[in-house]
Amino acid sequence: MTHPNFDAARTAEADRQHAGATASDLSGSGRTYRHDWGLRNGQWILTLNDPAITGATQVFVSVGEGSGDGKFIGAARYTVHNVAPGPGRISIWVEITWESPINLLVDYLIVQP
C-alpha cells in the first residue's frame, strides 16, 4: 500500500533531474568544529560567531548529549529544527526534551563553496 500523497510519476521525474549530480558538484573547502553549549533543556536559538561565514556557506549540524569524552546516546531527545548561516554567524534552533538542564554538544561541518 502506498501513501495517498505519493506520486510515482513526479518521483521518477525528480530522480531523472537529480541523476546528473556528481562528486564535482559537492566541492568546496570544509572544516569541523565542536562547541559545548553547556547545560540546557527546552528550545534555544544559539548563534556561533565566525567572520568567515557568509550566506553562501553550507553548514551541517549534529547535536547530542556528551562531555569532554565525546557524545553518547542517553534518554533525552535532541532535535535540530533549523540551521541558518549568515554574514559572520551560524544560528541554530535546537530542542532538548528533558526535564532538567543537561549538556549540549554541537558538531558543525562548515563548507565554503
Rank of each mutant, 00 (worst) to 15 (best):
T2C: 01
G88W: 05
G64N: 02
P4N: 02
A19S: 11
L109H: 13
G70P: 09
T2M: 10
R10A: 15
R89K: 11
S24A: 13
D36A: 08
G66C: 00
L105N: 01
N41L: 03
L104E: 06
Y33P: 01
I110G: 06
G30K: 06
Q43L: 08
A84S: 10
D50P: 05
S91Q: 04
D7Q: 10
L48C: 03
V83M: 06
D36E: 05
S62T: 15
I92K: 00
W93G: 06
T11Y: 14
G68A: 10
I90A: 06
G20A: 14
F6W: 11
G38A: 03
T79V: 15
P113G: 02
L109G: 12
P101N: 14
V94D: 05
N82W: 10
H3K: 10
S29G: 09
N49P: 11
M1G: 04
V61A: 10
F6P: 02
T32I: 09
D7G: 04
T2S: 12
T54L: 00
Q17M: 05
A9S: 05
F72C: 02
F72L: 05
I45M: 09
D69H: 11
A14T: 13
E65I: 05
L105S: 02
D15W: 15
S91C: 01
D50H: 05
Q43W: 09
V83C: 04
D25F: 13
E65G: 07
T32D: 08
R10S: 13
R40K: 15
Q58L: 09
I110M: 06
F72S: 11
W93R: 09
E65P: 02
D7T: 12
S62I: 12
P87A: 14
L48Q: 11
G86Q: 06
L48S: 06
W44M: 01
P113K: 07
H35I: 12
Q17F: 05
G68D: 14
I92L: 02
H35D: 09
E99Q: 14
G88V: 07
G30H: 12
I45W: 13
K71A: 07
D15R: 15
D36T: 07
D36C: 02
S100P: 00
G28W: 08
P87D: 15
S29H: 11
D69I: 08
G42R: 04
I73M: 06
G86V: 07
V94C: 09
R77W: 11
P113M: 01
L48E: 13
T79K: 14
R31G: 08
S62Q: 08
G42D: 08
F6D: 11
G28S: 06
I45S: 15
H35N: 11
Q17H: 04
A56G: 13
P113A: 03
D7A: 10
A76N: 03
G88D: 04
R10Y: 06
L26F: 07
N5D: 12
T2K: 10
P101W: 05
P4C: 00
A8D: 14
T57V: 05
G68T: 15
V83I: 15
D69C: 03
L105F: 04
G66A: 00
W37N: 01
L105K: 00
I96P: 05
W93H: 15
T54W: 00
W93P: 01
L46E: 14
D50Q: 04
L105T: 02
I102K: 05
F6G: 02
S24T: 13
I92P: 00
W37F: 13
D25K: 10
V83L: 03
A8F: 13
A56C: 04
R10G: 07
Q58C: 04
N41G: 08
A75W: 13
S24E: 12
I102M: 03
